[in-house]
Write a protein that binds this DNA or RNA. Structure first.
Length: 403
RNA sequence: GUGGGAUUAGCUCAGUUGGUUAGAGCACUGGUUUGUGGUGCCGGGGGUCACGGGUUCGAGCCCCGCAUCCCACCCCA
């Protein structure tokens, strides 16, 4: 038997119901916020991710499905969605067109990681990206949209918030942090020593307890913001307060992708195990420029669909459509024809074997049909069909031509 | 990539110190004496015990390997 690859799952039956329910709910809300669908390829040039996500990130450093194709191009399966959307944005010259462009997307992402609950090698994200708005109101808007989607799905969460600063305050802070790290360099873990050189901000995110205890006294970026970043962050908090969205400030929240600046946020769930981040996002004002576009402010987020599926509260499914059955073999052709006609308007299940009434009622119940319709000897003689509403338990008999 | 646990029917799981033909519930299927379901009763099908080796007279059970899932690390959505 050939099995699916490690960390790659089939989605079918009830899982697919939940999957499509999520997509339609999220899509509906994204459209209300004025976003439009964008689809980009699963395969991109490797350089795209190296330049956007960043070579120091784990994603690019060790998790990409990267290979040389037959034309000797260095390509990889996309590990995340933002880079492709930004590339498309620049390639279609929307940066030069100016104005505001808002996109939503969903699809498969690939990361070569050790699988775990909530962590797959092929997984799916729903994401949104907004280009051309530098106002912090847009940041708040994104958070409100994510919050609306989670609320519509009945998902509880905690929202964590931080600011990563911008090109004015980040470099100065980085120097300050590196000096701090150097002061305790001998005591920190190997990973952190490496991070000091590649991406010092990430040490704050270290899970090592000893490191964390040392970093309690580390300078916090949030307290070293320039005036513009500080006022934006304060404004963001005010907007969220005004709209009754609860949040926690997490000064150590650092997004694992290098392109974020200013607002960074993460929605986490306490009910799905250690892979608890269900939505992550933030502002990335420099990325369009990094990818050879005209400088354009942008902000976005992505949701991990598989992680959300177990948390979704589905609306109760109600009885729907018709079940048609024959009580003797002579009636089978009749119900097949009636089913063909009825399918022009609704869902119809047909049982091809003649059975007694009790078994047909059982069958209708099993497929969750609203109406159980049966033709037996009596009905054939009268040219009628017997119909029972399984919800209201009422019965009628109608002429076949009126069915 | 590191460490730990698990793997027996479609699903959830029992299975004694190694000993005849591997069980249950649910699901599926048929019947219930001739037209009333979801909720009665009776029956039936379905398992190379994940896979590959080894020890043994004999392995679901012990040993080794391997795959997958789960947990933690890590990472992130």
């Amino acid at each position: 038997m050939i099995n699916s690859l490690r960390g790659m799952n089939d989605i079918l039956a009830e899982d697919y119901e939940r999957f499509t329910y999520f997509i339609s709910t999220a899509t509906e809300i994204a459209k209300k916020y004025g976003f439009h669908f964008v689809q980009t390829p699963l395969l991109e040039e490797t350089a795209l991710f190296k330049r956007s996500v960043g070579e120091s990130s784990d994603i690019v450093g060790k998790e990409m499905y990267q290979f040389i194709d037959k034309g000797e191009n260095d390509v990889c399966l996309r590990p995340e969605g933002t880079a492709g959307v930004v590339r498309a944005f620049v390639q279609k010259k929307l940066d030069k067109a100016g104005g505001i462009h808002r996109f939503y997307y969903h699809g498969a992402m690939f990361r070569y990681e050790r699988p775990q609950k909530g962590r797959l090698r092929q997984f799916h994200q729903f994401g949104v990206e907004s280009f051309g708005v530098d106002s912090v109101y847009e940041d708040a808007n994104m958070i409100m949209m994510a919050s609306d989607i989670l609320a519509a799905l009945g998902i509880g969460y905690r929202l964590q918030l931080n600011s990563l600063g911008d090109q004015n305050c980040m470099p100065a802070y980085r120097d300050k942090l590196v000096k701090f790290i150097e002061s305790c360099e001998d005591a920190i873990c190997e990973d952190c020593q490496r991070r000091k050189l590649t991406n010092p901000i990430r040490v704050l995110d270290c899970k090592n307890e000893k490191c964390q205890s040392l970093y309690l006294n580390a300078p916090k970026l949030l307290y070293n913001l320039c005036e513009a970043c500080q006022s934006d962050f304060d404004k963001l908090k005010t907007i969220l307060d005004n709209n009754n969205i609860k949040y926690e400030i997490d000064t150590n929240l650092v997004r694992g992708l290098d392109y974020y600046s200013k607002t960074a946020f993460e929605f986490v769930s306490d009910n799905i195990g250690s892979q608890s981040a269900i939505t992550g996002g933030g502002r990335y004002d420099r990325l369009v420029e990094f990818l050879d576009g005209k400088a354009t402010p942008a902000v976005g987020f992505a949701m991990g669909i598989e992680r959300l599926l177990e948390l979704i509260v589905m609306p109760e499914s109600s009885r729907e459509g018709y079940y048609l059955g024959a009580m003797d073999d002579e009636a089978i052709d009749l119900i097949v024809s009636l089913a063909h006609k009825k399918r022009k308007e609704t869902k119809v299940n047909v049982e091809y074997k003649s059975k007694n009434l009790k078994n047909h009622l059982k069958g209708a119940d099993k497929v969750n049909a609203r109406f159980c319709c049966v033709i037996g000897e009596n009905e054939r003689n009268d040219g009628t069909i017997w119909i029972k509403d399984l919800e209201n338990k009422t019965e009628t008999t109608v002429k076949m031509e009126l069915f």
